[in-house]
Amino acid sequence: MDAVVTDATQPAIALRGVNKWFKSATGEPLEVLKDVAFEVPPRSILALLGASGCGKSTLLNIISGIVEPSGGSVSFGGVPAAEFTGWDTIGYLFQDDRLLPWRTAIRNVEFALEAGELARAQRRQRARAALRLVGLEEFADAFPYQLSGGMRSRVALARSLVREPRMLLMDEPFSRLDAQTRALLHGEVLRIQNMKHMTIVFVTHDVEEAAVLADQVVVLSPRPGRVREIVDVPCARPRDPTHPAVIAYIQRLRALI
């Protein structure tokens, strides 16, 4: 299917010298990102950590292809973004669940398959499998208003997984949930990542979240957004945020941000 074959030995995602200017309200160009470069090894988890205004969401949108960079390059498995055809192998999870209120849980999951040409029965089958993966199969026919916040996030997760992505991009995932539900969903994402061997890039302003989930943390500094430092977090999983080794990383990251 892919016109250009990606190379598994290359980084799953690589950014080189990425710049981004926006036109501000006064018409003057505003520099949002400056010379951003990092690599994401296949099957690893990378966190983009920074305070608000450091352009981390813009960076994620550049990776997902919704926003064009003003300069620099993005490549996937060694293939430049311009020649890359496997956009359906990239899943995207928003900050909020964005479930369509007029669709049941399973129909919301199917929505992600409706951009393609899959037959209805196959869509249904794959959506059911994705719901099973997040433990919500029995709520397939519930409407969003009938579900709790955590369940809604699981449906959104199932929707971003139903296309079997090799890469998952998450924009401050689950940040609107309470701490407990959030920790539960973090565990869920790690379990699924381990099972499906996905590469994950996520944006966060939460130091603890970065330390608990990521193999590598790219710390960004604001105005314009630049890479301040890239920190490897080699701790074993599952990580307990009260474990001394994890606490040491949390403190180190907090000092950088």
Binding site: I66, D88, Y92, F94, R98, L100, F111, A112, E114, A115
Partner: peptide, 24 residues
């Protein structure tokens, strides 16, 4: 607008965005 953005990340064609998001 969030639903439109969702559809865009899924690379859904404009005609389908009309029938699947605008119409409902």
């Amino acid at each position: 607008a969030d639903f439109i953005e969702l559809a865009r990340t899924l690379r859904m064609p404009q005609a389908r965005i009309m029938t699947k998001i605008y119409l409902p």
